[in-house]
Amino acid sequence: MKENVIIIGGGVAGLEAARQMLSLGLRPIIVEQSDHLGGHVACWHRLFPDMTPARELVAKLVESCREANIFLETTVQSINRLKDGYAVMLSNGVNILSRAVLIASGFKLFDAAKKEEYGYGVYDHVITNRDLENWFAGAEDLRIPREPKVFGFVHCVGSRDIKAGNTQCSKVCCMTAIKQAIEIKEKFPGCEVFCFYMDLRLFGKKYEDFYLNAQRDYGIRFIRGRVSEVSETIDGRVQVKAEDTLSGKPLKIQMDCLCLMAGMQCNPSATSIADMLHVEVDTDGFLRSKDNIYSILESQKPGIFFAGACTGTKTVPETVAEARAAALSIFNYLSR
């Protein structure tokens, strides 16, 4: 009989791992707490660097997991360690025995309203990266004006910010800001677009090319300095203050819309599962791997594996690669 493997989380990591497990002859069971598969990526419009429609990737993954057992709107109630494996009890009453568990519960987007000085949820034209992505995907959003003349992006919202509880860099938001800035410029060619950054962290394939294109072909302006506060003008525009650290002077500018690049935090449900399993949480709030070089996908506990953003901020391709590797690690673990 094919062996069960529990996968907690039905985002990109969980789906790709399930797909690989199916081809390795295992029987993956995906437990997803929301009502859809594909996680955050399912709500995204296009993915850098090739502007791939996110929905295509998710559809492909979902299609290849048709043979997997999938429980939506289901959470893990308890996990008990057995002699050789784990007994997992789900919120729908199903009990599963599995020798290996894959935690693929991903990240939670930082709640931008917590950075009160930026006025998300208070001012009329302050939005987040996710709101903008939804809008690109066709959702209506009255906070985005019909014909914006000046549009801004604030990098590192809730990332690299000890007071927001996150010291880590979220890795993808510099690139996402540039991608979204270009998309805004494509929609509104007459609009001035500004990015406020502390560092531009553009490490991945083609990211620097995007930066160069953004400057050269789209005239997007980059201002080095963290936005310190945002207020609303009498006519409802957004007043932004930052230091222009290259000039060494304070700078202010009014905008028609301001987009906050909210960062990644470990998903609280990952932490609660870690609790049940007595798996440690690392100093950055993400789950602790056995080590951070050679065994990122292994926990300290036998049979408990990780894939994707539960161990730290990840891009989509990194997540996919980890999911594949985790499926293989689990296969090897089970065939010992």
């Binding site: 930066y211 160069l212 400057q215 050269r216 005239g219 980059f222 222009d244 000039s247 002077k249 304070p250 700078l251 202010k252 500018i253 009014q254």
Partner: peptide
């Protein structure tokens, strides 16, 4: 304070057209 709403960028605009490479300065 640098007030970008009031700044006179006419010179910048002219030179941006003459020397588009300038925009790529990092």
């Amino acid at each position: 304070t640098i007030d970008l709403d009031r700044a006179d960028l006419s010179l910048y605009r002219k030179i941006e057209r003459l020397e588009p490479d300038m925009k790529t300065c990092m």
